[in-house]
Design a protein around this nucleic acid. Structure first.
Lengths: 165, 165
DNA sequence: TACTAACGTTAGTTGGACCAACGAAATGTG
DNA sequence: CACATTTCGTTGGTCCAACTAACGTTAGTA
């Protein structure tokens, strides 16, 4: 695949894996990944904060919207939020009247988290907001490129999620 | 591939921007970006830590290797490290005998940071290590896909770097 | 019964990104 | 020249996300 022979390429710019020094630094995928994520996170966090929300709020509401009521442990698994951090997230959501936390009669270790009507409406609004923020982050890319990026990233995430559980 | 026209594709999966609930959550580019960066950062940090190094060490050495001696302020600009954080990074590098910090006679506000012979050798080793780590992070992708990913990310970083300086 | 595992919770650590403000030194402006 | 502004290295913080440890409670299991 992709001629491993150097010198056969007539391109003006050096191949990425042949760069050295700071030029290599600037094109290092892991570095670009970090930088892009930093910018993206900032934009998303600021956007959500302006609407009195956080990333995790959206993640939890989205999961409840799709799968219905769930225990905190289950929400933790599906969203990737640590169960210790999830406590305060659920607190914030209940404070805003978006979800309800009730003990599970069938298993008294568990709490059942249920989305309220207000929570559903809220999620719809956040969903739109997130769409706008995604658009802002991905502004320089066309639709096909956005799909491609998402697919490549999903492959990476998938691969590494399997390895460390 | 990449027919930018919707509806022409016979794919079974829904288009990414038409998903709802948790399925959308799982395919959100900003989320994938965060997750991928988290995994990548962890791998790289652990790998470098095992060699008594850190990301910033590599960044500084790479910059010095390419452009020669520089002031801390200049290194800060080129690597993106905050100038306040750079202080301890330079300390760590001098402690290991990889760079030298000397006052600049031409501008007595500045320090001139110069790479030592040992620093050059060290950089060569770190360079190889980073190559291995990159390979581990990008394991699930082929060479062409890696290039594509790097290019897409570079476009994002470029775009957002201009906006906030 | 006793042991093990899961659950929610509290309290903590670690590390990265970032800001404020300082004295010293340089540069610009009148 | 004098004065204001800017730059530089440095100190000492803040804030937040990711992560860990441990505890009491409850459920399954041998």
């Amino acid at each position: 695949m992709s001629s491993s022979e150097p010198g056969t390429s007539p391109s003006a710019a050096p191949r990425m894996d042949e760069r050295t020094g700071a030029a290599r630094l600037r094109s290092l995928p892991t570095r670009l990944l970090s930088l892009a994520a930093t910018h993206s996170d900032r934009l998303v966090n600021e956007g959500l904060a302006a609407a009195d929300a956080r990333k995790w709020h959206f993640a939890v509401l989205a999961t409840l919207e799709e799968s219905g009521p769930a225990s905190q442990a289950e929400l933790s698994r599906r969203t990737g939020i640590y169960r210790s951090d999830l406590v305060s997230v659920i607190n914030e959501l209940t404070d805003r009247g978006l979800v309800e936390r009730a003990p599970d009669p069938a298993d008294r270790r568990r709490n059942v988290i249920t989305m309220t009507e207000r929570g559903r409406a809220r999620f719809a609004r956040l969903d739109e907001l997130v769409t706008e923020l995604e658009d802002e982050v991905l502004a320089p890319l066309g639709p096909a490129e956005r799909d491609q990026l998402a697919r490549l990233l999903a492959r990476l995430v998938d691969h590494h999620a399997r390895r460390d559980g």
